[in-house]
Structure formats: C-alpha cells, structure tokens
C-alpha cells in the first residue's frame, strides 16, 4: 500500500473516531458509511511506491507547507485560488472546488466540496487530496487546523494587494511544479500593471466611491483589496481614511466629499435598480453627470490573475480620455 493512501486511511479513521468531530459529522449513519469507505480503501491493491522529493513553501500563516512533488489531487476552497490553479496550467490536478467557483467554464466538471467559506470536511477528505488551498479570510480556522491535523498539506492564502498576488503566483508555481508558467503569468501581470501605471501616473486622480453594499451604504475602504485596486488604477478613494476594510459609511460625508465617479457591483442590483437608487442623491456630482458604473463582482472580488482585467476596466472608467475606448469598460447605464 502506498504511503499516501495509508495516510488517508489514517486520517479518515482519525476523523471518524475523533472526539473533536465537526458539527456536521455527528450522525451515526455517516460514521457507518465512513467505516465502509475505510474498509473499501483497505482492499485497494497497493501501487508501486515511488519515493518523490518534498517541496516546501511558506504560506500566509507563516507555516511551512510541504508536499511530495508534485500534487496530483488538489482541492481549492476559494474561487480566486481555483482560477489561479488554472492560470498556472494545473487545472487538471484539481479534484475539488467550492460551489461558488465558476471560472474558467471547465471548472464546473470538477466535484464541488460544499459552499464557499463553509466546505464539507468529509467530502474533502473522501477526495483524498494531497494539497488543499484555502483562503484565510472567511474560512474558519478550525477547518484549516483539522485538515493539518489529519496530515493533509494545507496552504493558506491571504493576498490583499497586487504585490501579494504576484508572490502567491510564484509560491503556488513552486508547490504545483509549475514554476515556468508562474513566471510567465507573473511577467504578463507585471507588464499590464506597469502599462496602467504609466498611463495614469501624471493625470489628475478622480474621486471614486466604490459601493459594495447599498442599504446600508458599505464602501470599499482604503485598506481593502478593492481600495488598493482603486489606487493602482489612478483614482482617489472616498473612503481612503476608513480604519476597516469595508466600513458602513456616513452618507453626509459622501455628499461633502462629493465623488466624481460611483461604482456599484452587478450582484447588488437587478437591471436599473441601483442606478435608480442613486438617482435619489441628486446632490452628488457623479449622479448629476451620470457617472455611475456597474462592474462584475466576481472580477474585482477575486484576487486571481484576472484581477488585471478589473484593474484595466477601472483605469478606463477613471480616465476615459487616456484609455479612449480601447478597453472594454463596465456597463454605464443612462437614466
């Protein structure tokens, strides 16, 4: 029997009989199913053992994550990480993804392991992953701890800036055995970023309001990922001074600061609902000048390689004169 299989059986058994079983694992029938599964695995004929070298990288919890080179059964617990795995050309190694993952289209063929931020631990373990990629924010620490306890290498990502995404690309390239792909992607990433930076560098920066929630008004603050995108795309954030990433913001202060451009996410509103909602605020120049844009939420919310598309879209919205109509921009609805 292969070592990795033995580990999995051990992990499964440990989960089955552990006292610290997760909430969704207290049901007796599941335990019985689990036992049956364990016995089934025990009868799988062992493959020939091939000693493979270990590869280690540091994740964003400053832990060393080591895998045998190279993982063939990867599970991603975030849409952004799923996209990156595909960007690195390692999509075929993915055996599990969240229900939220929808890009690229072929991802839908991969088995889903539960809701984003609320994965089903049992399904993860049943897939016998040799690497799990997890986001830090939104994921309960217990899930990561449990996976680690079971001996499953778990890489935790907490990228919040474009630089951190580049760093993430290189580390995932290393651990997935896709270093050259990672270099290429990172290179393109840098080039596109540089191109945007050069063009917006010397033009005046418009004041941007980026609403992630409308009622109540929740903005992307200076400390959020979206906040860093706004800076990068040559805009000034209305909520730059907020001390938390996504603050509930005072509408009076918005009126006082009077943004030039308002950006809303497409998930928030059906058809023209958001535009109509903003029409109530005629005191704002952005509303009077019809500068309300709608952006794809999946695009800006995911720290994947596609974030460059988002950056370019934002830059084009902020500086239409500089970018002309050369780039596809977010939908701008008129009254």
């Amino acid at each position: 029997m292969r070592w990795s299989e033995a580990t999995h059986i051990y992990s499964y058994a440990k989960l089955l009989f552990s006292r610290r079983t997760p909430k969704n694992f207290t049901w007796l029938p599941w335990r019985i199913c689990g036992l049956v599964a364990v016995s089934a695995i025990l009868f799988v004929p062992p493959a020939k053992a091939e000693p493979s070298p270990k590869v280690c990288v540091e994740d964003d919890l400053s832990r060393q994550v080591c895998v045998s080179a190279f993982p063939k059964r990867v599970i991603s617990l975030a849409p952004s990480l799923t996209e990156i795995v595909f960007d690195l050309g390692a999509g075929h190694t993915l055996v599990g993804r969240t229900a939220r993952c929808n890009e690229p289209p072929e991802v839908l063929k991969i088995q889903d392991i539960g809701a984003y931020m609320n994965p089903d631990l049992e399904r993860i373990i049943a897939l016998r992953p040799d690497l799990v990629l997890s986001p830090e924010s939104g994921m309960r620490k217990e899930v990561v701890d449990r996976l680690t306890d079971l001996g499953i290498p778990t890489f935790v990502d907490n990228s919040r800036t474009l630089d951190e995404i580049v760093y993430l690309l290189s580390r995932l390239g290393t651990i997935l055995g896709r270093e050259s792909d990672a270099k290429t992607v990172a290179q393109q990433f840098r080039q596109r970023r540089q191109a945007v930076r050069e063009r917006v560098d010397h033009v005046s920066k418009p004041l941007i309001l980026f609403a992630v929630g409308i009622r109540p008004l929740v903005l992307a603050g200076g400390r959020s990922f979206i906040g860093s995108l706004i800076r990068e795309a040559g805009g000034t954030n209305v909520a730059e001074d907020a001390t938390i990433p996504y603050p509930k913001f005072n509408m009076e202060e918005v009126a006082k600061r009077d943004p030039d451009i308002i950006i809303v996410l497409n998930k928030e509103c059906r058809e023209d609902e958001c535009f109509n909602e903003w029409q109530k605020h005629q005191a704002l120049s952005a509303v009077r000048n019809n500068q309300i844009y709608q952006l794809d939420a999946d695009l800006v919310a995911r720290a994947s390689a596609r974030i460059m598309d988002a950056l370019e879209q934002l830059a084009a919205i902020f500086h239409p004169k500089v970018f002309g109509s050369g780039l596809s921009v977010g939908v701008n609805r008129t009254k």
Binding site: M117, G213, R215, L217, K248
Partner: peptide, 18 residues
C-alpha cells in the same frame, strides 16, 4: 453568501443612515 450576511447583520442591528 457573505455579502447577504453582512446586510442581514446590519439590518439586525438597526439602521437609519439612508
């Protein structure tokens, strides 16, 4: 989803801002 959760949470705590 997380976004709905946030809205629900704000609603539960009360809001007059808009």
């Amino acid at each position: 989803g997380s976004h709905e959760k946030q809205r629900i949470l704000f609603w539960l705590m009360g809001d007059f801002s808009l």
